[in-house]
């Protein structure tokens, strides 16, 4: 089990390096992040054993990322709408 997850991680690393060499236009970042998320999830589920752990541990593991998304989402809500009113500055 550990070894197959390990091989998958190596394969994904190779893919992410290979994909980075191609120009996918707006998809560059989503693809790179998608692969990173997949790799991270594999580590969390198998190496860190969340798959076999209690629902509480799963909730805790997810909550960190949910809170991160709140920080990112709301802050970018400011940066992305700054130009809308045409105020000088950003």
């Amino acid at each position: 089990m550990c070894v197959s997850v390990f091989l998958a991680l190596l394969v994904f690393t190779a893919i992410t390096v290979w994909v980075a060499g191609l120009d996918l236009g707006p998809l560059n970042t989503p693809v790179a992040l998608g692969i990173a998320v997949t790799k991270g999830t594999l580590v969390v589920l198998f190496f860190m054993g969340v798959r076999w752990n209690t629902p509480l541990t799963k909730t805790v593991a997810i909550s960190g990322f949910v809170w991160l998304l709140i920080l990112f989402g709301i802050t970018m809500g400011d940066y992305l709408t700054r130009g809308w009113l045409g105020v000088p500055g950003r």
Binding site: T13, T16, V17, G21, D23, L24, A32, L33, I35
Partner: peptide, 10 residues
């Protein structure tokens, strides 16, 4: 790794 190193490769 992808966010810092691979960003500009293409």
């Amino acid at each position: 790794f992808p966010l810092l190193y691979l960003l500009g490769r293409h």
